[in-house]
Computed example of a mutant assay.
Amino acid sequence: MISAPGIFARRSTPYWAAFLVILAAAAWLLWIGRAPICTGGYVKLWHGQTMSSENSQHLTDWYTPSHVIHGLLFYGVLWLVARRLPFGWRLAIATLVESAWEIAENSDAIIERYRAVTISLDYYGDSVVNSVADILAMVLGFALAARLPVWASVALAIGFEALTTWLIRDGLALNVLMLAWPMQAVKAWQGG
Rank of each mutant, 00 (worst) to 15 (best):
W79T: 10
V81D: 02
P86I: 08
E105L: 08
F87G: 05
Y75L: 02
R113S: 12
Y75V: 00
R115I: 05
F74N: 02
I69G: 00
I111H: 09
I93G: 01
L78G: 06
L80C: 06
S107P: 06
L80V: 11
A94N: 02
W101M: 04
E105M: 13
L121G: 15
T118F: 13
F74I: 06
S107Q: 09
G88E: 10
I69D: 08
E98V: 12
I69A: 01
P86Y: 05
W79R: 08
Y114K: 06
V117F: 15
G76P: 00
G71I: 08
R113M: 14
G88F: 04
V68Q: 01
R84W: 11
Y63N: 11
V97S: 07
I103K: 11
T95M: 11
L96I: 05
S120N: 15
A109L: 14
L72E: 00
Y75T: 05
S120T: 01
L78Y: 05
N106C: 13
I93K: 05
S99A: 13
T118Q: 04
T64K: 08
V81E: 04
T95H: 08
R90F: 11
E105Y: 09
D108H: 12
I111M: 07
V81W: 02
R83H: 13
I110C: 03
Y63K: 02
S120L: 15
